[in-house]
Design a protein around this nucleic acid. Structure first.
Lengths: 361, 361
DNA sequence: TCGTTTTCGCCAAACGTTTGCGCAACGTAG
DNA sequence: CTACGTTGCGCAAACGTTTGGCGAAAACGA
């Protein structure tokens, strides 16, 4: 019975540590688990210190397979996103990853591509890996059988980015964001507006448009149905929808609220192709305030959502769920970043003299 | 001794399957491992079929902790990236993830932020998780002690995105990409050019600029040293460096090769702030051809790198390394996507009549 | 001095899987 | 009918960890 690492072979294990510290492997285990409740049951202060010193000296790292096998906890949380190449999702993920690590967990992300088959496959993979819980970034508004199945299977989870039903969720207060956008455009005097509302199954686009439309209706300028179009959450989707919008008979709207910055960039392109100059004779408001928004040739006014914080907060909520607590959905407040795509408009400027100052960043 | 899943508790295990199929657990194990060599030593065709039927019926999924403990292989590969919110890296990662899954592996990504401490922490985390191998996306050109330590510790790995030394790597042929950019600008008649070369520790920027500079030198127009600036690989970096470039005395260059699209977008902004119109009196070439490049108000000419394929190819190489084969570095060919940021230029148009046609996409 | 409590640390079983070994039973050749 | 190779499958040990139980020693009160 040789010891790993002592004979130069393989990694050190608990046995190695125990032998070097002259204690039993179980004692070593207790000394190295930081949980204070079990710590009371453990060894003397001296022994603990000695074991810990040995452990760090020989670079012992607990084998998660052994531990996971015994405890059936992996300290892994699965994250299901609709797309990782979307900076919104990858920023949320960064928030999750960072905070999870601080809390002793690790985030394991998979890509569901917002497609039924792939979502299921990705989910099964995560469960097969025995994640302790899930953060779902691609929930669907109605009849999301994947989310339902999690409930049925008693898998702990938290929704983020999009919410659904009254499941635990951390999202941006998208309705309020829509209100912000509407108030901004109303202040600038726009009464003839349109909305690119995103995919109908995503709560994000749905609520953003709802807040926007409600505010306009309350101001006495209800947005007509043909001026509310669905679109994909990417550049191409925004371009296609805007092209369709501008092809409608009658004069084009003086402002468009696009529920996603990428789609807004597509809208800008389509508007330009149609001979319109953004910030000059058409105003555009995006959503999320991704880093590139401020850097566009005509900087884009956008409703900023706290993506990073959403991620961080969702892992915190998940840990509460894992601890058996019941948690309520949370909505984080958005803010408006007004820029030239609305405020520099000569058209709108003479409609309403008060112009929002551009924030420093 | 009750069986999991039969009494409604917990997940089914191999024991459950074996009991239901009326065989020993070891037989069940053999029947469910698809490896043909061991398959020969396994059970009869009938028995195997029966076991497999039972397994799928009750939804058995091998517990990776148990298996990993026994085999000390996790079928997990770690991916270390400098930043996941960068679409270049996330696209590479998507390529890795997709192909890895096809090959029976799973990719586990972590963020090193291109910062020494974080890289090390992320690496140790991956190794603590017992990944079978690593794909490193943030290698540094000189004295990368992290990569060196992998060699010393005999951890199988493959570099991607950036290469270093003659370690196994899958990258874009960045030198060739620089040549492409130079040839394009030379054809358009630009003789007075500048380069934003990225971070000095990244092979990508280094080689792209080298290929570019060598081509210009060979054409009799060497790029002067003060016209080659380093910059971060993001919008802000490009803006800062371009502002510095344009603050130099003398006339501004007629074209700038920026080794990264995000930085190129920053360069566009800085140029605009300096009163220059891109594609009109200054030409800009980016690198990577990220999706947004084609959608900018002035579509950006960019050297397209096969990001997705790079990812897919690197996991293939890693599996070869894991199999004990020795593999040579690979460089995938870039292509040029010429667009209005160079070709619509009225300045350059009269310098050189032949204008590259804009590709369909 | 002796009982009683507390502290410290060992023992052993268990988690779910893989795999070398060995033993029947069967078929085939001599 | 014996000898032998092959096929099919069970046995048991191991992988590294955690944790309930328990005994020995130390601390304490009377």
């Amino acid at each position: 019975m040789t010891l790993p690492h002592l004979d130069g072979s393989g990694r050190p294990t608990l046995r190695t540590v125990a032998a070097l510290a002259g204690v039993h492997v179980s004692t070593a285990s207790r000394a190295l688990t930081q949980t204070p409740p079990a710590g009371a049951r453990a060894a003397s202060k001296d022994t603990i210190a000695r074991i810990q010193r040995v452990a760090t000296e020989i670079g012992f790292e607990r084998n998660p397979h052994g531990a996971g096998l015994r405890t059936s906890r992996s300290h892994l949380v699965g994250v299901l996103v609709p797309r990782l190449t979307d900076v919104v999702l990858s920023t949320i993920y960064e928030g999750i990853d960072e905070r999870a690590r601080e809390l002793g967990y690790q985030a394991f992300v998979v890509n569901g591509r917002d497609v039924a088959d792939q979502r299921w496959a990705a989910l099964e993979m995560l469960l097969a890996r025995r994640v302790d819980g899930l953060i779902i970034g691609d929930a669907r508004l109605a009849d999301d059988d994947l989310v339902d199945s999690l409930v049925a299977r008693h898998v702990p989870f938290v929704l983020t980015n999009r919410h659904a039903g009254d499941h635990p969720a951390v999202t941006c207060d998208d309705y309020a964001g829509g209100v912000l956008a509407a108030e901004h455009l109303l202040e600038l005097g726009h009464t003839d507006v349109a909305v690119l509302a995103g995919q109908p199954y995503a709560s994000t686009g749905h609520e953003r448009s709802a807040g926007f439309a409600a505010t306009y209706a309350a101001a006495g300028h209800p947005v007509p149905g043909h001026r509310i179009l669905h679109s994909a959450f990417d550049v191409a989707g925004g371009r296609v929808a805007t092209t369709a919008l501008l092809a409608q008979h009658g004069p084009p709207p003086s402002a468009v609220f696009v529920v996603n910055d990428f789609a807004a960039i597509g809208a800008i392109g389509a508007a330009a192709a149609h001979g319109l100059r953004v910030g000059d004779n058409i105003a555009i408001v995006g959503y999320n305030d991704i880093p590139i928004a401020a850097e566009l040739p005509v900087p884009l006014t956008s409703v900023a959502s706290p993506m990073h914080d959403m991620g961080a907060r969702s892992i915190e909520l998940l840990l509460q769920v894992l601890a058996g607590e019941t948690v309520a959905p949370e909505r984080l407040a958005p803010t408006l970043s007004a820029r030239e795509s609305t405020t520099a408009s000569s058209v709108t400027a003479h409609r309403a003299p008060q112009i929002q100052p551009r924030p420093a960043n």
